[in-house]
Design a protein around this nucleic acid. Structure first.
Lengths: 129, 129
DNA sequence: CTGAGATTGACAATCGTTCTCAATAACGCC
DNA sequence: GGCGTTATTGAGAACGATTGTCAATCTCAG
């Protein structure tokens, strides 16, 4: 049975109100700072649930999992700034079909793919020049 | 100054003689079993060096870094079996240019990309049916 | 309202990885 | 071949992210 608790809701909202990807730790710190006495373990569980339910994207970078709210059901990829963490959602049917084709070509089934592009966004490019 | 030690060579060979991706831990265990008294820390360092020098590919999955030998200088992606770990190297100029274009389109510079396709290989598909 | 059982949270435990630092070994030089 | 400099090693400690534990708590169907 799935129960709705204010903690889970708090995590969902905190995630929704965040630009770019956040780590579970960061999100937890933010919640505490905002006055929510949420346990760290709970944040991890809530995030895993959200990602599982398709309500959040997750990617791993640098040894930690990063999460980001996303519209349920839509499949897309990301363009992520290495410096400031800003993200742009990108969709690319060409890549989708390519992944499916290349998998099929080698006899692979149930293909899933990880496609993310990292770089420096326009602002950070200037700053770092 | 870069020194050549038998340990680094052992890691390079162990990696070269392995099919698919391996974790640092697994590789270390294999070396010990083969009689090489190599330290775990050294394996980590050697792998990081190899990846840095472009002699190995690395990807992170499930919270750990996986490595695989690859021909220096060539850029390619992977088709990885979720079950048996077999990998197929794939090159896709279409994806390369797409990544570069989409990055440029949004003002991003110094684009790097992560493109990997997971699935079940032909053999495992049959086995799991 | 009430009881069953899902959920929470403080803390310990785990796991991969990196750090520390004394001991060792590689390599340029004579 | 010796020698000294100095990168490299390795055992174990330290570390950080994550997951497990388990009693207390809260949700929700009835």
């Amino acid at each position: 049975m799935r129960r709705n608790t204010w903690q889970r809701e708090a995590v969902r909202e905190a995630l929704g109100g965040t630009e770019g990807f956040v780590s579970a730790q960061t999100l937890h710190a933010g919640l505490r700072e905002a006055g929510s006495e949420v346990g760290l373990a709970t944040v991890y569980r809530a995030l895993a649930d959200l990602a599982d339910a398709g309500e959040a994207d997750s990617l791993q970078s640098d040894g930690e999992n990063l999460y980001r709210a996303c519209t349920p059901g839509s499949h897309h990829h990301h363009l992520i700034c290495r410096h400031c963490g800003a993200t742009v959602e990108i969709t690319a049917d060409a890549v989708e079909t390519w992944a499916r084709d290349v998998a099929a070509e080698h006899g692979f089934t149930a293909p899933q793919h990880v496609v993310d592009v990292f770089g420096y966004c326009a602002a950070c490019s200037r700053e770092l020049a």
